[in-house]
Nucleic acid binder design. Structure first.
Length: 111
DNA sequence: TCCGTGACTTTAT
DNA sequence: CATAAAGCCACGG
């Protein structure tokens, strides 16, 4: 089992900062990491979540169209409903609940 | 160095 | 609405 690298660690820190009931897409996270100066893509974020997402609110990370990743759709839907998110089938209202991190506070978390 | 692999995304059917 | 195809790019082997 691979050991989490710097990028992994930082992605996890950001995901851990997503508030209850709010959402972010894999692509959003990739852009955030890029703004922090780290090369990253949506697929890369997905990989980190798959391998090391267990310790953070992974269910708040969804696809860009608001659907849930098939591999975790069921458990994610349950947890999301549990925190008040309206889950329609395997789709959530990403547009309304999208979380925008405060970059200043974010860079503080990175120190 | 090269290559296959995606918890992805966007565009076209 | 669903599906497919193409694009994407860091990563590990």
């Amino acid at each position: 089992m691979r050991e989490p690298g710097l990028l992994d660690e930082r992605i996890l820190v950001v995901v851990d900062a997503v508030p209850v009931g709010r959402l972010v897409s894999y692509g959003d996270l990739a852009v955030i990491m890029q703004m922090l100066g780290m090369p990253c893509t949506a697929r890369r974020v997905a990989r980190t979540m798959r391998e090391f997402g267990a310790g953070v609110p992974w269910w708040r990370v969804v696809r860009s169209d608001g659907t849930l990743a098939p591999a975790v759709a069921q458990p994610a839907a349950e947890r999301l409903r549990g925190e008040g998110v309206a889950v329609d089938g395997a789709r959530v209202p990403l547009v309304q609940l999208r979380w925008q991190p405060d970059l200043d506070a974010l860079s503080q978390l990175m120190r």
